[in-house]
Design a protein around this nucleic acid. Structure first.
Length: 684
DNA sequence: AGCACGCCGACT
DNA sequence: GTCGGCGTGCTC
């Protein structure tokens, strides 16, 4: 009764508005669809409390196009919002009056059920919005490409290509490598962490990844490979083309521009091709019958999405592998602590060469920091090259190109022990110690505690030094040190993909090293101290990753390959000298466990005003967790940060609680917004 | 962002 | 008794 009279009143108001000439949508003029007249819709709204599905009425004339996965526009609250249909159904729950869909933007079912499940899982993991994840996953629509696919239903147009031959020779000497390939080819879903030791030539990691992809294709399934950047993409594509042909795979890269990106997405969606390769947005590619996911060099920080919820491609793909029950391969010449954790938990099998094989297949690595090698050649004082490094370069240049890795400039100063150079960390919470000015008392950047009586836990010294970055040696300086030798520079905006076999000094910043087809004769890894002394939890891990990346471009010791690293003697240098990325990762993970830091535990960072954070935490229902802060951020206008450390077991409950709190506060339009970020490691 | 609904004061 | 202020909460 009450409901009826309310309806009548609304109708009167509506007709009054229409009487005044408002262009309101005519009610009842377009009949609802005969079959499944209700569409479940995921609204694209940045507001957490609106990040869920809503029901709309489907007008008959839109019914054919309004398929699950299609992009739509619908009136929502005051405005016309974009969204996706997630399902069609016969009726909506009682008590809601449905509004009609405004239009179907495109009938292409781009938000597949699998992608919606994945986006939901990612949003839950990162306490973020499903629609934010969907925005990163689905490429923007291009109308003219839609036309090309008009009228095509799901399913492949042409028969799948002939199964490729799987060449396992690039896995020779790798324990568990051939077995991984044969399990894959047999249709099983093994999971592995591949620690390759070669970045050039026919047995390099791109060839290994291509072999794994071929094995998955041979089993009749699809495969997906994700790389950090365009250079690695080009290298992997070359290897894939050699195995599958240039039509055997599709590339998905945001760098290609909207048209090819959207076209290739739709081609995968329609099953034209079953192998996709690309950069981080490709992690969501609609590969049909996905059998294998490969992630290359998972330690690269390009894998962190730069927009909320700041998801990491590794975590996205781990979730996807679980949801789609497919094989997974993390391939790298280094090993991240996260990958090590997967190995230690038995989730993934390690694939790597054993020591005797490694000794023949990797270059000899020497460290110049030993005191008797420290004195410098007086002629070279300007180039600041230790004598051993100079000799290695001179010898190498007789046999081919020599790589010189120099650090990028601009590291932030932090505190370390003056005597043994151990980074200084807070005795209470393990946060990094910093100094606000010259002579200021050192303070923890996390908990704010003053550490005036700090003593190094390693050597007991009370002396601290600010470790300031070393300046990058310029190509010019090296040119003077080696007159007559061509100097090639690859850094910043001028990155070279490859260099020839002739003698040359190749100066590159980490990650920008060109590939020499027959390998470098030698490599000098300079500025190691600057890289190691950065105020970051990941300084060691990252330095080692850069070192292995460069060293894996050098010929094996048997062919004269030599790597010289100029860093103070340190456990990390030892891991490189012994070529032991797995041991290094295990040691690093052990340290993180002791300190209870990620990835041994998980972490949430709440950033905002002090009042905002207090309000956020007030009604937050948390299981046992360690709270650190809030502490003011240096140089920021009153912005504070609170860190929440919690275990993996509690993670689902914690992220759910954070999401609930975010939604509640955004619904109330609280003035002091708090940013919630999970597992961001850059500030640790 | 907009629009309902609801509780309170002013005016017919 | 009715109209309209805007503060709070929901939006299919």
């Amino acid at each position: 009764m009450g409901g009826n009279s309310g309806d009548a009143g609304d109708n009167v108001q509506l007709s009054l508005l229409q009487g005044f000439g408002q262009p309101a949508r005519p009610q009842g003029t377009s009949p609802a669809a005969a079959v499944d007249p209700v569409a479940q819709v995921l609204i694209e709204s940045p507001l957490p409390h609106l990040d869920r599905e809503f029901d709309y009425l489907v007008p008959e004339e839109l019914s054919a196009a309004a398929v699950p996965g299609a992009r739509i526009k619908a009136r929502f609250g005051g405005q016309e919002l974009a969204g996706y249909i997630t399902a069609r159904k016969a009726e909506a729950p009682e008590g809601v009056r449905l509004v009609a869909l405004s239009k179907v933007v495109s009938p292409q079912p781009v938000l597949t059920p699998g992608l919606l499940r994945l986006a939901t899982a990612v949003a839950e993991r990162y306490a973020g919005n499903v629609s934010d994840v969907v925005r990163a996953a689905v490429p923007p629509r291009v109308a003219k490409v839609d036309q090309e696919f008009a009228g095509r239903g799901p399913g492949p147009v042409e028969a799948a290509a002939a199964a490729p031959a799987v060449d396992a020779s690039c896995f020779a000497g790798y324990r568990s490598g051939p077995a991984f390939l044969s399990h894959l080819a047999a249709g099983e879903s093994p999971r592995a962490v591949l620690t390759s030791h070669r970045s050039y030539g026919p047995a390099a990691w791109p060839a290994q990844v291509a072999a794994a992809v071929a094995a998955a294709v041979q089993s009749g399934r699809g495969a997906l490979a994700v790389v950090p950047d365009a250079r690695d993409l080009a290298r992997l594509e070359a290897a894939l083309a050699a195995v599958l042909g240039t039509d055997g795979y599709l590339r998905l890269s945001a760098e290609d521009g909207p048209t090819p990106r959207y076209r290739n997405y739709l081609r995968l969606l329609h099953g034209d091709v079953r192998v996709a390769v690309g950069t981080r947005s490709a992690a969501y590619a609609p590969v049909p019958e996905l059998g294998l996911i490969v992630l290359c060099d998972d330690g690269d920080d390009l894998y962190v999405e730069q927009r909320a919820p700041y998801q990491h491609t590794r975590e996205v793909l781990l979730l996807r592998a679980g949801l789609e029950d497919c094989a997974m391969l993390l391939a790298s010449v280094a090993r991240s602590t996260e990958a090590e954790r997967l190995v230690q938990h038995g989730w993934a099998q390690p694939i790597q060469c054993e020591r005797p094989v490694l000794r023949t297949q990797t270059p000899r690595v020497v460290n110049t920091a030993d005191s008797f090698q420290q004195e410098r050649d007086p002629l070279l004082s300007h180039a600041r090259l230790p004598q051993a490094a100079w000799r290695a370069a001179q010898d190498g240049l007789a046999r081919g190109p020599v790589l010189v890795q120099v650090a990028r400039t601009g590291f932030s100063p932090s505190l370390a022990c003056q005597d043994c150079r151990t980074p200084a960390r807070c005795p209470e919470c393990s946060g990094p110690l910093g100094q606000t000015g010259r002579g200021a008392v050192p303070a923890c950047r996390w908990c704010g505690r003053l550490a005036g009586d700090y003593r190094c836990p390693e050597c007991g010294s009370a002396r601290l030094r600010a470790s300031v970055a070393g300046a990058a040696r310029t190509a010019e300086e090296l040119g003077r040190a080696f007159p007559g030798v061509p100097v090639i520079s690859s850094a910043g905006e001028h990155i070279k993909d490859a260099v020839g076999p002739d003698p040359a000094l190749v100066v590159a910043t980490p990650g920008a090293e060109p590939v020499a087809e027959a390998g470098y004769a030698a490599a000098l890894l300079l500025d190691g101290n600057a890289m190691l002394s950065r105020e970051s939890l990941r300084a060691s891990e990252e330095t080692l990753r850069r070192w292995f990346g460069a060293a894996s471009l050098v010929r094996p010791a048997a062919e004269g390959g030599l790597v010289v690293v100029t860093a103070d003697s340190d456990a990390v240098v030892g891991q490189l000298v012994r070529w032991d990325p797995a041991g290094a990762a295990a040691r690093e993970l052990g340290l993180r466990r002791e300190l209870q830091l990620p990835p041994a535990v998980r972490i949430a960072a709440l950033t905002g005003s002090q009042a905002g954070i207090e309000l956020f935490v007030q009604d937050l229902q948390l299981p046992p967790a360690r709270l650190v802060g809030p502490v003011p951020l240096p140089g920021a206008d009153g912005t504070h940060r609170l860190l929440v450390f919690f275990g993996y077991r509690e993670a689902a409950v914690v992220t759910a609680a954070l999401r609930t709190r975010k939604a509640a506060l955004s619904a109330k339009r609280t003035p002091d917004p708090v940013q919630v970020r999970l597992d961001g490691l850059d500030f640790l």
